[in-house]
Design a protein around this nucleic acid. Structure first.
Length: 341
DNA sequence: CAGGCGTGGAC
DNA sequence: TGTCCAAGCCT
């Protein structure tokens, strides 16, 4: 249960954290707005994605889709293309579904209650709390990886933070601590504390603004997490086939990974494997470490229904996952493609 | 509810 | 090179 020892003065903790944040809090673009659409986009982008990556994409994306109406109006392919390189492409599909629901069902107005928010695709416990506090300044708790780290250290809490029990504890603690009068600043502050003083490795406890509230004995050992699944190796073989200034690509089907995006056609038959490869890549996809070869095929392959010849000048408009886009832009393939243009 | 879902940076 | 991980959600 939460530490309720008389030593821990909750209001003093809130004040120390919020006052530190007012002095040292960083100035991110998504902290300069209270528009729930802008907050939502930033939160979806930031799910499992680092701040530097998002900083490189967020403002341009917001200029292109400044309101839900703008995203609702484009086709899915365009939405996916705008998200290219950010990964977890389901996020932008959720974002577009939300945009369309706001436009068609909510008359352009964003829900501002937890029940309404959590019905929307892609919005779970964390993101609903983030919207409630960052956009509406309501005292909703949030628990992300930063908050889990900060709270587990403050309470010297050694149950796995990704276990059912650990999550229950953290959410109860976050709810108890969130400042009812300054929810936006408090939640921003506790997350930012986790990125700065209370960072993963080599936490800077000596300068931490809430060190007097912290009971961690060995902060660098917290939080405890469940073991991750093992990485398994995979190898696959794809083809580059060009005909009449067009390139053969495969459209990923609904339900597949990368649904709606385009990739090099895969061929694992012995004949393809016997061909020399133009390019060898290795990359990680979730729990797989993939080695992928791209073979140059000159004889017309038997086409599968999901495969189509795409004019080379159209390829840049199509959504592709990073490894495929990189392959297309690589020197090895570029030489060949340039010659054909 | 454990496993799937991307990517790039830090070390 | 390999390993770990990030403002999580869905099934």
């Amino acid at each position: 249960m939460p530490d309720t020892s008389p030593i821990f003065d909750i209001q003093a903790f809130r004040n120390a954290l919020v006052e530190w944040f007012r002095r040292e809090g960083k100035d991110y673009p998504w902290r300069r707005t209270e528009d729930p659409w802008h907050i939502l986009v930033s939160e979806l982008m930031l799910q499992q994605t680092t701040i530097p990556t998002v900083l490189g994409r967020y403002e341009l994306w917001m200029r292109r889709f400044p309101t839900p109406h703008h995203l609702a109006a484009v086709d899915e392919q365009t939405a996916l293309r705008s998200w290219e390189g950010l990964g977890y492409y389901r996020r932008v599909r959720s974002l577009q579904a939300i945009a369309r629901e706001i436009v068609t069902s909510f008359g352009g107005t964003f829900p501002s209650d937890k029940e309404g928010l959590k019905k929307l695709p892609g919005i779970g416990p964390y993101t609903s709390g983030a919207l409630l506090s960052f956009a509406f300044n309501k005292p909703a708790p949030i628990v992300d990886a930063n908050v889990a780290r900060v709270l587990s250290r403050i309470d010297n809490y050694s149950t796995a933070v990704d276990s059912t029990e650990g999550l229950k504890y953290l959410w109860a603690r976050a709810e108890e601590l969130v400042d009812p009068d300054h929810a936006r600043e408090f939640n921003s502050a506790i997350m930012e504390l986790g990125q700065t003083y209370c960072r993963i490795s080599a936490p800077d406890c000596l300068l931490c603004p809430v060190r007097s509230f912290c009971t961690a004995e060995r902060p660098e050992t917290l939080p405890v997490k469940n073991p991750k699944p093992e990485i398994t190796r995979a190898e696959h073989h794809d083809i580059l086939y060009i005909r009449n200034k067009s390139i053969l690509l495969s459209k990923c089907q609904e339900g597949e990974r990368h649904a709606g995006m385009y990739r090099f056609p895969q061929r694992d038959d012995d004949h393809t494997l016997s061909l020399p490869h133009l390019l060898k890549q290795t990359y990680n996809v979730t729990r797989y470490r993939v080695t992928r070869y791209i073979h140059h095929v000159t004889d017309a392959p038997a086409l599968r229904p999901e495969e189509e010849l795409i004019p080379l000048e159209k390829v840049h408009e199509l959504p592709m996952a990073s490894p495929d886009r990189k392959a297309l832009n690589s020197a090895a393939l570029g030489k060949l493609l340039d010659k054909i243009k």
